[in-house]
Design a protein around this nucleic acid. Structure first.
Lengths: 148, 148
DNA sequence: CAGGATCCCATAGGATACTG
DNA sequence: CAGTATCCTATGGGATCCTG
């Protein structure tokens, strides 16, 4: 598994050492903005991640405490959900989205960029609430199943 | 020179395709937060960038319009300065710093994180003003030298 | 469908020595 | 001091096939 190497005590460098991994962030993005939860969901993103890379990054994100695995019913029997630590990345992701949208005005998410500019704090709060709620539900479900 | 590959139309992916380069961001960080301007300055950062990598990234950042080279007097005859495009990265850098500081509370920049939490908008504005002023001065200097 | 296993190669980037 | 050049190795990651 690709491991995170801390190169210095600088918080920005620290952030980059994790965050600099392009694939990992795209998975987080998909969870935050696109409501994706399963292996297949992530696989189908436009950037075209390979299965071995996806497996690797999901493991890494789980090991580092950004996401948790949980059982689901249906064809895909595994889901992934952001933890509090994962949710804490929302502001960084949003700031990246704003910058990317500003540079890349023809991108298909121009609307999203504009919405963000209007009400960044609101969007962040709303996303965080939604994801936290989901996380809490899943956590309690898992604890209950464990007890039974 | 390492080239930037755009993998999709997503603004976050777009941001990552550039921003995901850990070395490039550390150079930008040094310019924004540590007032570094010369090759030697960047070389001396804690993360220990190699000379070939540094050269490569400086070229890339210049090509992509994030920085400009300018002549200076003294031992180091070349300086680097952020353009408007480079300055536009401040909010992303700051958000990363905040996240990094929150995760890595023992880092030597805890104080910086706390200051940021108290007055993020103010810090961003102040940094942007300072850097813009510098950029404008250097730009007009260079234009004058070119005319003479 | 989730993910493991393999093969294989392009390339990032460290170390080091050199130049103007 | 600001790069250049070269060598060399680790590894990221694409493609493909396999399994429970």
């Amino acid at each position: 598994m690709k491991e995170i190497k801390k190169r210095s005590e600088c918080p920005i460098s620290f952030c980059l050492d994790f965050f600099g991994d392009k694939w990992a962030i795209l998975i987080i993005r998909d969870m935050i903005l696109n409501d994706k939860t399963t292996f297949g969901d992530f696989l189908r993103s436009d950037e075209g991640i390979a299965t071995n890379i996806l497996t690797d990054r999901l493991k890494m994100l789980e090991t580092e405490g950004f996401i948790v695995r949980y059982p689901v019913s249906g064809k895909a029997r595994i889901g992934y959900c952001l933890t509090e630590k994962g949710i804490s990345l929302i502001p960084v992701i949003i700031e990246m989205a704003l910058w990317g949208a500003a540079q890349n005005i023809n991108g298909y998410r121009k609307e999203f960029g504009i919405q963000l500019k209007k009400d960044k704090a609101g969007v962040i709060k709303q996303l965080a609430m939604k994801l936290t709620e989901k996380y809490i539900t899943i956590k309690s479900d898992m604890e209950n199943n464990f007890l039974n």
